[in-house]
């Protein structure tokens, strides 16, 4: 894991797949389409301004998760505005960070969805986030519930 999804055709293909899921789409899959769109790297860096990119206490990740969850409530995700997407991204980063730094699963999402989210979103992000997600995925697969 950890390979950057860089080609235009790969990114377009991800957007196509998400578009095809329709009503079955999960919020993090919609986020994937957002991260795969043109200019997403700059958007990601802006959305993650102030988010720790180095090891921090678990409580910091939990605080970020609580705060960002309020920004991406399901009714806002349906609208898919940039602020909601940014909140969802920070929410995903908090899950990745807690797993990466502490091997702790701080989300009530099903484990399979957490692993899928990490595998799907991570390679769409610039470093250092791609690497954080890759390490988190590795730990998620190793950690027993």
């Amino acid at each position: 894991m950890g390979e950057r999804v860089g080609t235009e055709e790969q990114r377009r293909a991800i957007s196509l797949l998400v578009a095809m899921l329709g009503d079955d789409v999960k919020p993090f899959e919609l986020l994937a389409a957002h991260c795969a769109s043109d200019g997403a790297d700059a958007w990601v860096r802006t959305a993650l301004l102030g988010v720790p990119s180095k090891r921090v206490p678990l409580a910091t990740w939990e605080d970020l998760k609580r705060h960002s969850k309020r920004e991406c409530a399901p009714d806002r995700i349906a609208v898919a505005d940039a602020a909601a997407m940014a909140g969802l991204l920070r929410y995903c980063v908090s899950i990745a960070g807690a797993l990466c730094d502490h091997g702790a699963l701080v989300s009530s999402m099903p484990r399979a969805d957490v692993e899928r989210m990490l595998a799907l979103i991570g390679p769409l992000l610039p470093d250092p986030w791609a690497e954080v997600f890759a390490q988190a995925l590795s730990r998620a697969r190793a950690v027993q519930v």
Partner: peptide, 19 residues
């Protein structure tokens, strides 16, 4: 098919690039 769509999404992240 829905599960296959999700597998395709994962497949896009795998393997080596050719570009």
């Amino acid at each position: 098919v829905t599960e296959d769509i999700r597998r395709m999404m994962e497949a896009l992240h795998g393997g080596r690039d050719h570009g």
